[in-house]
Amino acid sequence: MSNELEGKVAVVTGGASGLGEGLARRFAAEGAKVLIGDIDRDAGAALAADIGVTAHFVEADVADMEQVSGLVSTAVKRFGGLHVMVNNAGISGAMHRRFLDDDLADFDRVMRTNVRAVMAGTRDAARHMRDHGGGSIINLTSIGGIQAGGGVMTYRASKAAVIQFTKSAAIELAHYEIRVNAIAPGNIRTAIVRKSASGEDLKKLEEFENKIREQMRNDRPLKREGTMEDVAEAALYFATDRSRYVTGTVLPVDGGTVAGKVIPRAPRP
């Protein structure tokens, strides 16, 4: 590690597990003080204890805008500032076999968590950064917000909204030297689908996931599996001065999936 974030303070929402955990650990390893926000009290507290004195956990549900604001204010109060805001928390929503079976009962919950929380986190972080020399805001979207496809329609719509919001915020906040970028992970194995389908039969869910991941592997140009570390590396780039002239971008971390499907090679004569 090269201490690229030495002296910086970062907030990571949804930071107790999955991609958020990877981000929190990498930022801390690079010298940042990290405030971890999550609804999972036990996992969040354990992670902060494992990282050490440079990390602090706050139990927070980002669906509540006041709790999002509390993460920003706590980071400033505890660590003396805020330089990097990562709006990572998200949920998948209910799984349905067909869109025609979707009652849209979870629409408001998904949008509050996946879209409104990102907007609130960006706004509240920017209010501090505006008066303190700027900063970097990183929003987690998904290749599901870039590529059209069947299934989890509300989730796809929410992630597409994050992309449009990120670009719009980047334009407005550039005046204050605040950079706003998005990362669109794809095919990274996390627990988000399992959490969204907790009522489903676990064996059937595993079979479904394995089938989908096999299809993803077949379509993906790079054949190795993506990892949380790959996403953390992209976030580190946006968090540091290496990206000081980069804003309003959406970076897929997906092994080339959104670039297009693999074209089968013709057999050699």
Rank of each mutant, 00 (worst) to 15 (best):
N3S: 12
K8G: 04
A10C: 11
A10N: 04
A10I: 05
G15M: 04
G15I: 00
S17R: 05
L19S: 07
A24T: 04
A29M: 13
A32E: 02
K33C: 12
V34F: 00
G37Q: 03
I39V: 14
I39F: 03
D40A: 07
L47H: 01
I51G: 02
E59K: 13
D61A: 11
D61F: 04
V62H: 08
T74C: 08
S92H: 01
G93F: 11
L100I: 15
D101I: 02
D103K: 13
L104S: 12
R112P: 13
N114P: 14
R116H: 14
M119I: 14
G121H: 10
R123A: 12
D124L: 05
D124E: 14
A125I: 11
D131V: 03
H132R: 13
G135H: 07
Q147V: 12
G149T: 08
T154C: 09
R156G: 09
S158D: 04
A161C: 08
F165W: 12
T166C: 02
A174M: 08
I178T: 04
N181L: 09
I183C: 06
P185S: 11
G186Q: 09
N187D: 08
R189E: 15
I192A: 01
I192W: 00
R194E: 08
R194K: 10
S198M: 07
G199D: 13
D201G: 07
D201W: 04
K203C: 01
K204F: 08
I212R: 07
R213H: 06
R217T: 11
N218D: 14
D219R: 13
K223A: 13
E225R: 15
D230W: 01
V231T: 02
V231E: 00
A234W: 06
A235I: 05
A239G: 11
R244N: 01
T247P: 06
G248H: 01
P252N: 03
V253P: 13
D254H: 08
D254M: 08
G255D: 03
G256T: 04
G260Q: 03
K261C: 00
I263Q: 10
A266T: 11
A266N: 10
P269F: 12
